[in-house]
């Protein structure tokens, strides 16, 4: 992580909060101020640059087969991007698997474009040195579901099964810290540092806000982060072994979180501290 960028982000935060404090009464909490800060910079979200990059990559012929991804089926038919993210994860007949957005993109990049899976999964996340194609593609696709309500169906038994596995992973305590996702995300009104922690077990609203804000641009990292990255980092913070990119476990957890967010309007790509 880049300390310098954090300092700068903090400074912007400090400035914006002090302005807010003058106008507001004492009932304004820190999280209200963070919300104000988010609003101030929300129409200048640098995630848009990643969306632009992703759109170009989507349309560009690439890989050994020299084809674009415009024939990629994200669940709503070949090439349909609009609203696709609001219905993922979903069961796909061709792969006989429940897939989230990133694993589906991986399928398209390997089957259509001819990349090998290892080429993509070796470094699936962006860094300050090198952007990630699959991550940018994901940012573009999610942007096309903006304003659309989350509607992940659990009608298919495989999706239902994935949801149940995800629920178990969410509550599964392990690792050197005896940690689970639910250790931090199953109580209302708690926070870590300045961030309110969403209660994703029993608050529908919290679960919706948390899910629909990702993928997001992280101001402190200067990068747009995908949902697979979010989960990967959650596991790292819990001191779990690093999950394989687009593995069944991450997809199951995504299914659990996505289904819980059903009914909420997708608002991403978001913006985080």
């Amino acid at each position: 992580m880049n300390t310098n960028q954090i300092h700068k982000a903090m400074m912007v935060l400090a400035l914006s909060t002090s302005f807010a404090a003058v106008a507001a009464d004492s009932a304004v909490t820190d999280s209200d101020r963070i919300e104000q800060y988010r609003e101030m910079i929300s129409d200048g979200n640098p995630a848009e640059f990643d969306e632009m990059r992703g759109e170009e990559l989507w349309k560009k012929a690439a890989g050994p087969n020299k084809v674009s991804l415009e024939q990629c089926d994200l669940g709503k038919g070949a090439g349909v991007v609009k609203g696709a993210y609001s219905e993922l994860p979903k069961y796909f007949k061709d792969t006989k698997k429940v897939q989230d957005l990133e694993s589906r993109l991986l399928t398209c990049m390997t089957t259509l474009q001819g990349f090998t899976e290892d080429e993509i999964t070796a470094k699936p996340f962006a860094s300050s040195k090198k952007p990630s194609d699959i991550s940018s593609l994901a940012t573009y696709v999610v942007g096309q579901s903006k304003g659309i309500k989350m509607a992940v169906s659990t009608k298919h038994p495989k999706v239902k099964e994935s949801y149940e596995i995800g629920k178990r992973i969410f509550n599964y305590r392990a690792g050197p810290y005896d940690f689970a996702c639910s250790t931090c995300h199953a109580t209302s009104g708690v926070r870590i540092r300045m961030q309110d922690l969403p209660n994703m077990r029993s608050s529908k609203k919290d679960a919706q806000i948390a899910y629909t804000g990702w993928p997001a641009y992280r101001v402190s990292q200067g990068l747009t982060r995908s949902f697979q990255w979010r989960l990967n980092d959650c596991f790292r913070q819990q001191r779990f072994p690093e999950p394989k990119f687009a593995s069944e476990a991450t997809i199951a957890l995504t299914t659990f979180l996505a289904v819980n967010a059903n009914g909420a309007e997708y608002v991403g790509p978001g913006l985080k501290r």
């Binding site: 960028q5 700068k8 400074m11 912007v12 910079i41 200048g44 640098p46 640059f49 101001v219 200067g222």
Partner: peptide
């Protein structure tokens, strides 16, 4: 230098 990465200006 004190301006952040990807600056926003209004």
């Amino acid at each position: 230098q004190s301006i952040s990465k990807n600056p926003y200006l209004l």
